[in-house]
Structures are given as C-alpha cells and as structure tokens.
Design a protein around this nucleic acid. Structure first.
Length: 922
RNA sequence: GGGCCGGUCGUCUAGCGGUGAGGACGCCGCGCUUACAACGCGGAGAUCGACGGUUCGAAUCCGUCCCGGCCCA
C-alpha cells in the first residue's frame, strides 16, 4: 500500500496518478484530481451530461416491480422559476433519487402550465409597456403574442431545471396545452357534463371588470381598506314624512335596487314592513321586505336589495318572488348601462358613477351623512381590480359530490398529508366547498367543448368536434366563446401527464403516483382538486402522500417577491454558488416545511459543508486509492479492533437508520441534519483525527489496513446516502474513490444494518472524548503556549473508565496535546500547581502557566451549577409523592444523581482548598 | 368577525411529560497542527411569550390572555 508523505507535492503527484490510472481504464467520467477547494462550476455540468448520456433518469416502459412516481407541479409560464420552485424540486429530487437508488423504477414527469389568466395578464402588461393594447389586437395576434411569451419562458424554465440537477425524465415532458392535454381536458369536461356535474347557469360570480372575466373564489383576495359608508334616506312612497335609512358602500348600485330589507324581529321597522319607499334618483319605488339574513347591527339596520350586484342581496331576492327582476345595470367593464339607469348616468364607469350619485344624493337631500369606514375589500388576485359581484352566465362544476370521497380518503389515511397539521385546514375548506366557476372570458386557454344550436339553443357536448346536428336539425352551430380555467387542466395532471384518457403503459404502470410535493398556497387551487379528479375519473387516489413545502423568506424575514427585488433567479445562484450548494442550503438548516429565512448564510453553510466533505475525501484519497478494491461489505471487526473503528461503524449504522427513517417520514431536513453532523463531527472531527496514527502506519500494518477499510467503507456509503441531496459533488467524489458501478446516481442505496451496531464501543468512546475535551478546556484556560505539551493527570471515577482511559491513553495525549497522561488511583493525591476540573469521567488535572489563576473561578462556577442541580434533585426526592408515585427507575436515577453530585462537589471543595493554598504560594 | 399555526440563547431552530434544554449562524479568546482559515480548539450566551391549572414531576398536557403569521368571511 502506498504511504502518503504528507506534503502537497506528494498529494499532487498522487492526484496525477489517479488521473493516469483512470485514463488507462478508459473511464472518461473520472475526476482528474481533487483541488483543495470544491469548485461546483467545474463538475456540475459534467455530471449532468453524464446522467443524461446514460439516460439515468429515463423510467422503464415496463417496470417490473413497485414503482415510485411523481409529477413535477408544472410551473406557470407566467415567469421563470423562483427559489421557491427550487425548494420543491430539491425535495422531490431527494425522494426520487433515493427511490431510484433503492431500485424502484422511478418516474418523475416534468411539465409546464399555460397558466391562462395569469399569463394573459403578464403579456397584456408587457404589451402595455410597449404602448400596445392587448385587448384591441385581433384574436390571432393575441394568440401569437401569448405563444411567443410561452416559448421564451419555457426555454428559461427548462434551463433552470436542468441546472439544478433534478432527475426528471425529459422524454416525458408535458405541457398543459399540448394535444394530449387538450384531449384530456375535453374528455374530462364531457364526462363531468354527462354525469350532471357540470352545469351552465346564471349565478353570482366574482367579476374582474379590468380583465373582463369571471374569476373563481380562490382568485380573489380580501384586504382591509378605508372606504366611506353612506347613509341614504329612502322616503316613504305615500308622501308621509321620513322613510327608511339605508347604509351602503356602493351607492352607484342604487339603480339596480328593487327593495329595502330589514330584519323581521327588528322593532325599529315593525311598522315599515310592507310599506313602499322611493328609491332615490330612480323615480321607482320598492317595498320594505323582511328577511332574517339582514344584519341588524350594520349601518342603520336596513339593507338595500340589488339582486344582480351582491350575493346576499341575490339570496334575499330569490326568497321574495314578488320582486321584479331587474336588468343589468353594470356591464362587463364596470360601466352603468340599461333602461333602469337614467340617461345622465349611463356610460359612467363605477368610480365616476359613485361620485355622481353621491353628489346628486346630497343635492336632493337623500344623503343623510357619510362616515369613514374600514372594511374588507375583494380584489382580483391577478389585476388588483376591485371585484364586482355580478350576475353572469357561467359554467360551473358541482363540487359537493366530488369532495365527499376525498375527505373520506384523507380520514381513512389513504392519502396522507405532511406535515399532518395541514389536515385541519384542508378539511375545513373541503367541508365548506363551493361550486367551481370554470369558464373564463379570456383568450388563453382550452376552449369550452360546447357548441350551441343557433336555432333551437340546444347544447352539443362531445369529445370530438360535433358533426351531428342537434334535435331541430339545424347545422348552425355556435362555439361557446369562453375558455376553461387553467386549473381545469391542471387538476387532471397526475393522470393526464401519463397519457389519460388513452390507456397508455405509463398510466398503467405509474398511476397512482407516489407523492405530490408543492407549496401550501395551492392546496385548494390544485391539490384538493387533483384528489377529487383522481377519485372521479380513475376511482383511485392520485398520490398516496402530499408534502407541503414552506414559503421562503429573505434573511430579513420578508416574503420573496419580484417587487422587493429579493428573489434572485436560481440560475444566477447556481452560477455563483453551484447547484449542490443551493440544494443543500434549501434543506438545511431551515426545515423545508416551514417559512424560513434563506440567503447568504444558508448558502455559506452549505458551501462550507461541501468543502468539508470534499476535504475528508481528499484526505482519505491517499489511503484508499482508486486502485484499491471497492468496499462491497462492511469491514469485519473483532474485539481486538481499534475502538475508533468499532465506534465509527456503529455511528454510521445509527446515522443510516435515522436518515432512512427521516426520509420515510418526509423529513428531509432531519435527514440532512443527521448527515451533516455525522460527516462533520463524527467522521472529520473525531474519527479522522483519532485514526490518523493508524492510517499513517504508526500502529502497524494490521491497524493500518483496518483503519483504511473502515474509512473507505464509511466514506463510500456516506456518499451514497448524501447523493440525493447533493448529487454532483457526491458523484464526483465517489468516482475519485474505489467504487463499483459507473454512476453513483444508479448505485444501490446502502442498507443501514450492514454496519455493525456496537453499543459497547459507543459507551467506551464517551470518556475518551470527554477526557480530550476537558484537557483541552484546561489547556485553553491555563494560558499555555501553543507549542507547550503539559503533563496531565486523571483520577477516573470508576475502574471501567480507568481501563478505557488507560487503553486509549495515546489517543488522548495526542489530541489533547498533553504528555504524559497519568492515571491516578482513587485516593492518590493530585499534583500541585495544576488546573483542575471535576468531570463525570473523573477529575482532570493539567499543568498551567504559573501566572494564571482562572482555575478557582471555573471551579467555583462549576460548583454553583452542581449545587443548584443537587438542591433541585434533593428537593424532588424529599417530596413524599415523588418516591411513592414516580417509576422506581426514575427514583433510582435521582438517587444516583445525588450521590454523584455530592461526590463531585466534595472533590471540587478539595480542589478549591488546594487551589487556595496554591494561590497563596504564588 | 370566525378559524388555523406559531412564540425556546442576539438570530434561525431541535426537543413535545423525568435532559446539566441540543444544534447551526453570529459573538469572544487562542491557534495557518502537513484534508479543510470556506478551518481547528476553547468560551460566553435561554428561569423555553404571560398568568393560572392538571401532575410526584411541565418547555412539553389543559385553560385564559398577550404578540406574530396565515387562511376564510
């Protein structure tokens, strides 16, 4: 075996040797050398190409066993990917890569969403900046603009996804507006229509007058805003003085009024019910009606009824059939129209109308007073326009029947939500679910697959464009002018992306999918609806687990947004820092399912970790050169093996088990945290430092061989387990070490239990590490020069500890930089002029610089801590209830603790006495 | 107005009935020890939002309140 010389020249030559050996083997994928620092740029592109060349992520057409599949939530073409997308993608990639390594046929379907309204709004805005009015363009030109936008952004989004190293199957890439998606969309519509779950009706919808389209409840946001509440007098129609006082924030809707409603139990209005009032400015009158939906506490207790312009008014109107049905008074763009609006007001937009109405109400003394009023205002999520509730004819999906099986499935545990706390939110929404308005009056979307007969008005709904004639025999068909809500395609995605409604092989083998990872913000828009469609169209869950990621904040805790400029393009971050650094920073240290800060700190931490990993391998390289045989199994250790070897394998075992458990439980951050701690602290800080002597051959050939095997094995397995998180760097390092197979991405996931558990080694390692720690502590406090190797003594607390310390004396001496370390017998007096510590493993003594006197302080502090603890524990034991009610082992533990603390405090007192005399001697 | 989630070292967080409350970042001190200064070693720093209650025992369970955040109306 080659021995390292321990200087840079040697290492470089060795690295050269690696390269030469690799070239001889004809392996072009090999890492040429390991520079002292890890440079992401150099390696990431190379491995991405290698994976692609080997078609590593191409899912088999005919998988033979249990598959793992998932669809990438197709990002909106509205813009480019954000770091938030990268977070979800990273979580998905961790799961996908792990399952692939576990030899499950794995399919991850990438895609793109046309994002109808959102995209149209973006394109409209963009054109507006260029001085072009989207709305005035002919239909074909509008479409051309939309397609151009889509093409540009699609390219960028694909580039971003590639740069992240995400293991999607590009051969299955899908777009929500491709031909197959169009087919699936039509099919879904037709099936629901035939099942009576889609209907067209005149209903109150959320109308966006700026975009001139209906939007769904989910596309409306409510915000507290300052407004004005007007109190208007509706005088008695019979000319008697007075009338009814009505409060409104939308006085311009007065033209659509048909009545005034009051609460039937409101004593203020008992005499008013049934009388008629004048509706100001209209020349019309209307009755005062009673309805218990009226909120008596609001305004003056009376509500004007505008059946076409307010949902509550509509409800009340429908309960009072005697009221006249008014014509439309506000058109799609928010302008006053129709016979009921006096000429003077027609054509005014709603803001101008409100002003004019208020002025005229004042002039004619109908306006009693106006108050500032803070209330919740509904705005369109996409255009920010104030939503106009408007009676309009639209297409709806009946949600009740679709929702029922989904709620049941989640309650049965057939679909699991992670983190589970979101179930509550989910249920609450599902239980109050409203019908879904799916028609949009925009350009960008799938057309509604309905034709209507010009003569008889009958609807023709078919998957194929209709050729058949409706009942009346006319051939004059008119297409429905509307398009479908984007989500009407997206909600089909888990199966539509696999080819539904065609009975494709992918659909057969990869549906239902395994997991869905997405942000909570689209829980209702998308996730819940996919669940409903899954049960309706395929009678199965679309996925078994849902994982909700958190929302990223910047380091000041603000939400990331384009507007604030705190949302960098992931491609730039990858260019600067590397994909692996970004990926690790996204899962560690902040939990992937919480809204945590993300920024330079996290990126630095990830980079530091990768550098550490890089350097551990770099250190190991000379001992486990590429020529060495790959570790096929864990090294077989015996009782005579070095403690650190037994210990490290045992730690590796526990790490593996916890990582696997964390990933199964959808806790990627916990998995990353455990790996981080293992690599940095157990492997690098402890094992490597302790094992250096053996590795260097100073403890003989057998010891060297064993340490080499352990190091090689643990590193190789650790790289495998880390691979899903940081695929490029691990692939690079894996190839630099002895390994079997040609890609780490396809290497098998190591079983955690192949490394032997060794609880004895773990227990024995404790006092060794502790001794090193306390001696270092004394050393730092004792004011010793860096090159000074002081003498040290330990009086162990028990014979077992004494045995271990004695066996590991050389290691302790080396790592604590003391010599010699002398073990004292139980009552053997300590030396003079020393710093001391009373630790659980025993008393530690170290020579110190003559001038320092910090020891007494440290001891006193320690004494105080221990005394406080002792008092607490004694108090607990003194409590009668404790002894009788607590479990016996807890009582015994407390007793042992009291004994231990008492002994240690006594020791400290002894030390302090010596210290006192010593200090006087100074 | 209703609901949900959360308040733990300066910051971000782990722990969710018996702990000397763990870690990371930041901070302080000493060190370029031949894998790593993007590092090593040591140190300081938290009565776990407040008040009650349950319990032999509460950061952990239950109430009330306060403060954040989100969702719905």
């Amino acid at each position: 075996m080659d021995r390292p010389r321990g200087n840079d020249g040697c290492l470089d030559r060795r690295a050269g040797g690696v390269r030469a050996a690799r070239l001889r083997e004809g392996c072009l994928l090999s890492a040429p050398t390991l520079p002292p620092r890890f440079e992401a740029k150099e390696i990431e592109g190379r491995w991405q190409e290698a994976w692609e060349r080997r078609e590593a992520f191409l899912a088999p057409q005919r998988p033979q066993r249990g598959v793992f599949s998932l669809v990438l939530p197709p990002p909106n073409v509205t813009g480019i990917l954000t770091l938030g997308h990268m977070l979800g993608d990273t979580v998905m990639d961790v799961l996908a890569r792990q399952h692939r390594m576990q030899q499950s046929p794995t399919l991850w379907v990438p895609g793109l969403d046309h994002a109808g309204l959102a995209t149209q709004v973006e394109v409209r805005r963009q054109l507006q900046k260029e001085g072009v009015s989207f709305d005035e363009l002919p239909a074909e030109a509008q479409l051309a603009e939309l397609v151009r936008w889509k093409d540009e952004h699609e390219a960028r989004i694909r580039a971003q996804t590639r740069a992240g190293g995400f293991s999607v199957d590009w051969s299955r890439y899908r777009y929500t507006m491709d031909a197959e998606a169009a087919r699936a969309t039509r099919e879904a519509f037709v099936r629901l229509y035939r099942a009576g779950l889609i209907y067209r009706g005149e209903r109150m919808v959320n109308w966006d007058p700026r975009l001139k389209t209906a939007v769904s409840d989910l596309e409306v946001t409510h915000r507290e805003e300052d407004g004005v509440l007007d109190y208007v007098l509706y005088p008695w129609a019979d000319g008697t003085p007075g009338g009814v006082e009505v409060a409104t924030v939308r006085p311009e809707t007065i033209f659509g009024d048909v009545a005034v409603a009051v609460h039937p139990d409101d004593p203020r209005f008992h005499d008013a019910i049934g009388r008629n009032v004048v509706i100001p400015l209209t020349g019309r009158t209307g009755p005062v009606i009673a309805d218990s939906a009226v909120d008596r506490a609001f305004g003056a207790g009376a509500l004007k009824i505008t059946p076409r312009n307010d949902p509550l008014d509509r409800e009340i109107f429908l309960r009072h059939s005697e009221l006249p049905n008014p014509p439309e008074i506000l058109d799609g763009s928010g302008h006053l129209v129709g016979d009921w609006v006096p000429r003077a007001y027609r054509g005014l937009d709603r803001d101008a109308a409100r002003k004019a109405v208020r002025t005229d109400l004042t002039t004619e003394r109908f306006l009693l007073r106006s108050e500032p009023f803070r209330h919740s205002v509904a705005r369109s999520e996409r255009s920010e326009a104030v939503i106009e509730p408007r009676l309009s004819t639209q297409w709806f999906v009946r949600m009740g029947p679709l929702a029922a099986p989904v709620v049941e499935a989640v309650k049965r545990g057939e679909i699991r939500i992670h983190p589970a706390r979101w179930e509550l939110t989910f249920f609450r929404w599902m239980e109050g679910i409203q019908d879904w308005c799916i028609s949009r009056q925009i350009r960008w979307g799938h057309p509604i697959p309905v034709d209507r007969c010009r003569s008889c008005g009958k609807e023709v709904v078919a998957v194929e464009a209709p050729v058949a004639r409706p009942h009346c025999g006319s051939r004059e068909l008119e297409k429905d002018p509307d398009v479908l809500d984007t989500w009407f395609t997206s909600w089909l995605w888990p199966f539509a992306a696999l080819g539904w409604p065609e009975p494709t092989a992918d659909l057969e083998h990869y549906y239902p999918t395994s997991v869905l990872v997405t942000g909570r913000d689209i829980m209702f828009f998308w996730v819940a609806r996919m669940m409903m469609s899954g049960y309706f169209f395929l009678n199965t869950r679309p996925f078994s687990d849902i994982y909700f990621t958190g929302m990223l904040r910047d380091e000041r805790g603000r939400r990331m947004s384009k507007h604030l400029g705190n949302s960098p393009d992931p491609l730039d971050v990858i260019h600067d820092r590397g994909a692996d650094t970004l990926r690790f920073a996204l899962v560690f240290p902040n939990p992937t399912d919480e809204d945590g800060p993300f920024g330079g700190n996290a990126l630095d931490g990830a980079r530091n970790f990768l550098t550490k990993l890089w350097n551990v391998v770099r250190f190991a390289l000379p001992y486990v050169p590429p020529g060495a045989s790959p570790p096929v199994a864990a090294p077989r250790l015996g009782p005579g093996s070095a403690l650190e070897n037994r210990w490290l394998l045992s730690r590796a075992r526990r790490t593996g088990e916890e990582v696997d458990a964390a990933l199964s439980a959808f806790e990627p951050t916990r998995a990353a945290t455990v790996l981080f701690g293992f690599v940095w602290h157990d492997l690098a800080d402890r094992y490597v430092e302790i094992a250096k002597e053996a590795l260097l051959g100073r403890k003989g050939e057998t010891a060297q061989r064993e340490a080499t095997e352990v190091l090689g094995f643990v590193l190789e397995r650790t790289l495998r387990r880390l691979h899903p998180f940081v695929p490029h760097v691990t692939e690079e390092l894996w190839h630099a070490l002895p390994h079997e197979g040609d890609l780490l991405a396809l290497a098998p996931w190591p079983p955690a239990d192949e490394a032997p558990l060794d609880p004895v080694a773990e227990i024995e390692m404790e006092p060794v590490l502790e001794a090193i720690h306390w001696l270092r502590n004394l050393r730092a406090e004792g004011g010793l020069a860096a090159d000074r190797i002081p003498r040290a003594w330990i009086r162990p607390s028990g014979s077992e500890v004494a045995r271990v310390l004695s066996a590991e004396r050389a290691t302790i001496e080396r790592l604590a930089k003391v010599r010699p370390l002398t073990l004292l017998r139980p009552e053997e007096p300590p030396p003079a002029e020393v710093g001391s510590r009373v630790a659980p493993l025993g008393e530690c003594f170290l020579e110190r610089a003559a001038a320092t006197a910090g020891n007494a302080t440290a001891l006193e502090r320690e004494r105080e801590t221990l005394s406080a603890l002792l008092r607490k524990t004694e108090a607990r034991l003194g409590d009668g209830g404790f002894r009788s009610r607590a479990p016996p082992e807890v009582v015994r533990e407390a007793e042992a603790k009291v004994a231990d603390l008492t002994a240690r405090i006594r020791r400290i007192d002894e030390h302090l006495k010596t210290e006192g005399s010593g200090a006087r001697d100074l």
